[in-house]
Design a protein around this nucleic acid. Structure first.
Lengths: 339, 339
DNA sequence: ATGAAAGCGCTAACAA
DNA sequence: TTGTTAGCGCTTTCAT
């Protein structure tokens, strides 16, 4: 156990104030005598001193810590977000407490409560449903920055990617690729998980808008929706499609990586893999997509922008200046094997 | 701001103790009158009450929080570990504070200090070097559980995978596969990042022991070491090998996924991908390895075992019972396209 | 140039 | 059956 300021003061026969001023580096400013300063320094260099952040927190009603609630760390996108946000917070002298709610509203509510109890200065939240923002904002004195999902409302700071635009551009790009390689009438299969989430539904909106504009007929467009963005559901849905004897599409677009992985798994197990000419696409990017031989196009979100905006919104909320704003990050298409 | 116990007591004209006993659900036990209990309950149901964990923490000298320091969340293995450990801690009513040190000893030291300042009840640590365990143990009153890397010494609780054994079995399996498909004299290329880490060096030891036992000649064995387990180094090393006109091996074994990804990238960019007959292998597992057409064998660690052992070691250290022990998790080979 | 004291909200020991 | 108080270690304000 490290010594307290009081213990040090006692042992040196000084007052708490004196020791404290030296430890804070304000000796000069308050004209503590050089001799006294030296004595304190010598003592702490020998025995060490570590501030008790808990006591400080209680006194100042501020923890110098921020909370982050995401669905899960095993999703690479959120892990990346968490990693970069922690770096940014640390740069500002703040701790980031990272928790996973698995998109369970009860868990998320419980986590918000716990963060409140521990007096976080603010919360970054990937809301599990449309009600969470209001609930969290109330508990956190509006010190709330929403990430990745925009459920609407202008009351909160929000940082999201332009998913509609991403979807639109993705479909255009895929179609152009097909035409360029000589396939003038490609058909699309859209695979979407949990379209209750605005990020997902917007992706679909964008994709469909592009397919509309491209004039695709009904027979060139299929859409399969599953309740969650996970591996298992992707595998099952693609498995059923194959087992039911439905034709494979020329172009397969998935709303997220886990779903994409599941679909690939089903194709592999039943057909030894996706046909070589099948054009693949997924939202979110991962370096392992390089392993695929097919043409693949993924959508990479702009992490740096998102983190910077999210953090500066939080800083604003804490300082009490300015109004919370909505920030829309752009994305980048990442084509592979599509020259 | 939620009300304090004192504020509630004042407004109800009761004492702090009375209110507290009701809130703790000990009204019965201490024979608080039913009427009083009802009044308190009614009040808190209306106005709410949230305990102030910071004050509690200061008073009890205990935070009900544990720290976890890993190299990085963007490494899927560590993200998985963090995710599961958080679940386990939450089950026990403890918060887990997750931080990344990027294998930088200074950063790691700083994080340990910060956790101390915030009075964590214990720390899970992936040590950045051989000195960190002793340093951390001193600062944390021995409440330290080391993960993934065993730098030796019997003073600490450690949970690691049997990397030597894994390496041995992996090499045996790969060799058997080659023989079975008719390649009686396969040559191996071992690609290792940061063999200063015990996990990595043990993998190499195991691999080489197997190659010894299999009687491979010197010309059948190559080993390339790079300083870090990351994508860029893997890409560069494999790139140089190809650019220098050295022959590709029959079997490529990488010490970790990032390195493996880098090597694949170099093969893809220069040769359009790994030759179809090349047998691939890496430590750690990832579902996206399914994307590869080559025979691939990965090594999956036993997360469930590791988490359970790590947590129970921590529980023991906190309760003060028993001696810290070393736990060795076994692994499982995950063959793909190797029937 | 240095010291003393109040108070952040909680818990535990002791009173009544 | 309920009340009072000290104290966890820090910061801030007001005295010397």
């Amino acid at each position: 156990m490290a010594k307290t300021i009081e213990a040090i003061a006692d042992e040196l026969g000084l007052s708490i104030t004196t020791v404290r001023l030296v430890l804070l580096g304000k000796a000069r400013q308050y004209r503590i005598s050089a001799k006294t300063e030296a004595r304190v320094r010598e003592y702490t260099e020998l025995h060490g001193y570590e501030i008790n952040h808990v006591a400080r927190s209680l006194r100042l009603q501020r923890s110098d810590a921020l909370g982050l609630i995401i669905p899960r760390l095993s999703n690479h996108f959120f892990a990346q977000l968490a990693e970069l946000l922690e770096i940014r917070c640390r740069k500002a002298g703040l701790q980031l407490w990272i928790s996973c709610c698995y998109d369970n509203p009860n868990t998320q509510q419980e986590l918000i409560k716990q963060f409140r109890e521990r007096n976080v200065d603010g919360l970054f939240l990937v809301p599990a449903n449309a009600n969470m923002p209001a609930l969290a904002a109330a508990q956190l004195k509006q010190r709330l920055v929403l990430l990745d999902r925009d459920f609407g409302g202008n009351d909160y700071a929000v940082v999201v990617t332009d998913n509609r635009q991403s979807g639109y551009q993705l479909a255009q790009r895929l179609h152009a690729f097909c035409v360029q390689r000589g396939d003038l009438q490609p058909d699309f299969l859209l695979f979407a998980g949990n379209s209750g989430m605005p990020s997902i539904s917007q992706r679909l909106v964008g994709l469909n808008a592009a397919l509309d504009d491209l004039g695709l007929s009904a027979s060139q467009r299929r859409e399969v929706q599953v309740p969650h963005n996970d591996f298992h559901e992707g595998e099952q849905a693609m498995g059923e499609l194959i087992d039911n004897g439905q034709p494979l599409p020329k172009v397969l677009v998935c709303s997220s990586i886990p779903l994409f992985e599941g679909a690939m798994q089903a194709l592999k197990q039943r057909l030894g893999g996706a046909p070589e000419t099948m054009v693949l696409a997924t939202f979110d990017d991962h370096s392992m997509l390089d392993f695929l031989r097919n043409p693949v196009c993924s959508v990479r979100q702009d992490y740096a922008f998102m983190i910077e905006q999210a953090f500066s919104e939080m800083a604003q909320l804490i300082s009490g200046e300015g109004q919370p704003a909505r920030h829309i990050a752009s994305m980048r298409l990442v084509p592979r094997n599509m020259d």
